[in-house]
Write a protein that binds this DNA or RNA. Structure first.
Lengths: 344, 344
DNA sequence: ATGAAAGCGCTAACAA
DNA sequence: TTGTTAGCGCTTTCAT
C-alpha cells in the first residue's frame, strides 16, 4: 500500500542529506552533476512525487481555486466551468468545485470550509437564496482576509470585487428589437419570478425596446412563473386570451417549454408566432424548430473570470484594482423567427 | 491582508504554549476550563480557522476526492457529479473536479498531479481516447500506491477496482422489446461509432431483443455515426430507402437529432415512427414530442460511487474487496411511443 | 494543568 | 559541493 516515497527516504537510501536531495531534485546548481544524476535517477525509479501539501504549507500558495456553481444542471454553468477549467489547467491550477444548489447555507459553509488555506481564491456565482436573503458577509469576510474573489453571472453591488457579467439589458433589448423588426406586433415575455436581478435586467431590456418603438407594454403579455407546470398553463391561458405573434423567453428552459406548448397547439413557428430564447444551449439547438436565441458566451465568461483571478493571485494586479467585465452576447438566428431580407 | 490567525499567534497573545492552545481548541480534558474558555474566546473573536493543509500533512488524509469527468456538457455526467457532490458534502469531503475532455493526456496528467497527497481517492470515468488507446497504467499505478479508485459508467476489465455501471445490455434489450410490443416491425438503431464498450453493449441488447422475437437484424437499419451532420444525412437516407416504424437511439443527442429529422419530414411521432432514446435528460423531456426513453439514474450512480469510495478511504471496506455495482435503468414512457393498453 | 519537543514533507538560509 | 538547521501550522507524546 501507500508506498509513496519521500525525500527523506531517498536521502537515507543514498546516504546523503535531505537538503541535498531537495536541491538535486530541484536541479540546483549547487549540486554536482554526479550526485544530481544519482538522486534524480533514484527518484524516477521509485516514482518519487513531491507532496503538494508540504509545498503549499511552505509557500502559502496552494495553486488551487475554489469554484462555486449555483447549479450544474444548467447548461450555461456547465459551460462556464469548462471555460474556467481550461485556463486553470493551462496555468497549472487545480479547481475545487462546489455546487451550492442555490442554497445560502451551502454557500456559506463551503466558502468557510475552503478559506483555510485550501484555496488561493474563489470564482463564484451567488446562489438564489443568498441573493434573496441579502446577506453577503461570507464574501466580505473572505475578501477582508485578502483572498481574491471573482464573481460571475449573478453579482451584487455590496460585494466589492471583480465581476464578470452578461450584458443582460442590452441583450434583451436587442432580442426584442429583433422580434419587432421581423414584424411582430404583440410580443410576450416569459420571465421567472425569482428575485434575481438578472431577470429584472432582461425585463428592462424588453421594456426599453418596446418603448423605443412606441409600443405600450401589456401586462397580460408578461408571464412571471415559478414552476414548470404553472408555466404551461400560464402560456396557454395567455394564448387563449391574447393575440400574440412573438415571444421572448428569458431563459433556456422557458424557451423549450414555450416551444412545446406552441407545438402542441399546432401553432406554426415562426409563421404564426416567433420565439427568441435566452442562453443558447443544447435545448435551443435541438428543439423543433431550432430556436433563435441570445447566445451567452459562457465559455468566455469562465475564461475571463479565471484569468482575472489568477492574475490577482499571482499579484500581477493589485488586490484593490476592482473591475467589472461585461461579456457581450450575440443573437443566433435559427428557425424560430422569420427570415429577414433586410439586415439591420 | 491575509490576516488569518495561527495557533502560534494565539499562544503568543495569551502567553501560553502552542500545545496548550492546540489542546484547548480541541477541547481536551487536559486543559482547565478557565484557560480553555480564554483561548476559545480569543480564537472565536479573531476568527481562527485551523489550516487544513497542516492537518492533512499530519494525518495523511486530505478529506478530498478527485473526480474525473470525461465531459461536463453531457447532462448525464453533470448529474453524476451532483450525486457525488451530495454524499461527499454530507460526509465532509471536498471534491476536486477535473474534466478530461475525453483526452488521454489530460487524464494521465490530472491523475498524476493529484496523486501526490492532494486527494484520498478517485472517482473516474475513463476518457474515450484512453479507451481507444487501451493504456491504463495510470490507473494501475495509483491503485498500486494504495489509493482507491471507483470507476463509473465507462470502465475496463484491466483495471481492478470498484466499478459502478449502467445495465446497458438489458436496458437496450428492454427498450427494443418495448418498441416491438408496441407493434413496431422495423426497428432502426442509431448508434455512435466510437469504440466505446457501452455503445457495443447497447447494440447487443438491441440485437438480443430482435433475436428473441425472431426478427432478423437488418444492417441497413443500423446507423453508426461520428458527427452530427453526417447523422442527419444518414437518417434521411435510411428513411428514404427503408420502411421504418421504430427507432432506438443509443444516446440523448442522437435521440434529439432523430426527432428533429422526423419533425422536418413531417413524420408523425409516434403514429408513423416511434422513438426511444437513451439517458433521460433535459433534451428528452423538452423535445417535441417529449421522448420515451431509458432513464439512467445518473444521480444514483454518483452517490453509489462516492459512498463506496469513502468507505474504502475510511477503511470500512478492505482495499482489495472489489465490487461492480450495476445500476438498473427504467423506461420512462412519454409521447414518442404508442400508448399500450396491455402492460407487460 | 501546562509546556517542550519531535515530526508530517519540504525548502532555504546558513555553515562547513 | 554537501550538510545542518529552522520553520511552514498543527498534533501528540512525554515531561514537568
Amino acid at each position: 500500500m501507500s508506498k509513496r516515497i519521500t525525500i527523506k527516504q531517498i536521502a537515507a537510501a543514498l546516504h546523503v542529506s535531505i537538503s541535498t536531495v531537495s536541491k538535486a531534485l530541484n536541479d540546483s546548481y549547487e549540486i554536482s552533476e554526479e550526485t544530481k544524476k544519482k538522486i534524480q535517477d533514484y527518484a524516477k525509479e521509485h516514482k518519487y512525487k513531491p507532496n503538494t501539501l508540504a509545498l503549499s504549507l511552505q509557500n502559502k500558495k496552494t495553486k488551487t481555486i475554489g469554484i462555486l456553481l449555483p447549479n450544474i444542471l444548467t447548461y450555461y454553468y456547465a459551460r462556464v466551468l469548462r471555460g474556467i477549467e481550461e485556463v486553470t489547467t493551462e496555468k497549472g491550477y487545480n479547481i475545487i468545485t462546489c455546487i451550492t444548489n442555490e442554497s445560502y447555507k451551502k454557500e456559506v459553509d463551503t466558502m468557510e470550509m475552503l478559506s483555510n488555506g485550501t484555496i488561493d481564491g474563489f470564482i463564484a456565482c451567488i446562489s438564489e437564496e443568498t441573493l434573496k436573503i441579502g446577506n453577503f458577509d461570507h464574501f466580505k469576510n473572505i475578501l477582508e482576509d485578502g483572498t481574491p474573489i471573482v464573481l460571475y453571472d449573478r453579482v451584487h453591488a455590496e460585494i466589492n470585487c471583480d465581476k464578470v457579467v452578461t450584458d443582460n439589458i442590452k441583450s434583451a433589448y436587442k432580442a426584442t428589437r429583433f422580434l419587432m423588426r421581423s414584424e411582430c406586433k404583440n410580443i410576450a415575455l416569459i420571465s421567472t419570478s425569482e428575485g434575481l436581478d438578472i431577470g429584472k435586467f432582461r425585463v428592462d431590456g424588453y421594456l426599453k425596446a418596446l418603448r423605443k418603438y412606441d409600443v405600450i407594454p401589456n401586462e397580460d403579455l408578461i408571464i412571471r412563473y415559478n414552476d414548470e407546470e404553472n408555466l404551461k398553463d400560464a402560456i396557454n391561458k395567455m394564448l387563449d386570451e391574447n393575440k400574440v405573434d412573438g415571444i421572448f423567453t428569458i431563459d433556456e428552459i422557458s424557451g423549450a417549454i414555450t416551444t412545446q406548448v406552441l407545438n402542441k397547439r399546432n401553432i406554426k413557428i415562426p409563421q404564426e408566432i416567433s420565439i427568441i430564447g435566452f442562453t443558447n444551449g443544447i435545448l435551443s439547438r435541438y428543439s423543433t424548430p431550432p430556436l433563435t436565441s441570445v447566445n451567452r458566451f459562457a465559455h468566455t465568461t469562465g475564461k475571463v473570470a479565471a484569468k482575472r483571478l489568477i492574475d490577482k493571485i499571482e499579484e500581477k494586479i493589485p488586490f484593490d484594482d476592482i473591475v467589472t467585465e461585461i461579456i457581450k452576447t450575440k443573437l443566433v438566428e435559427r428557425d424560430s423567427t422569420k427570415k429577414m431580407f433586410i439586415k439591420f
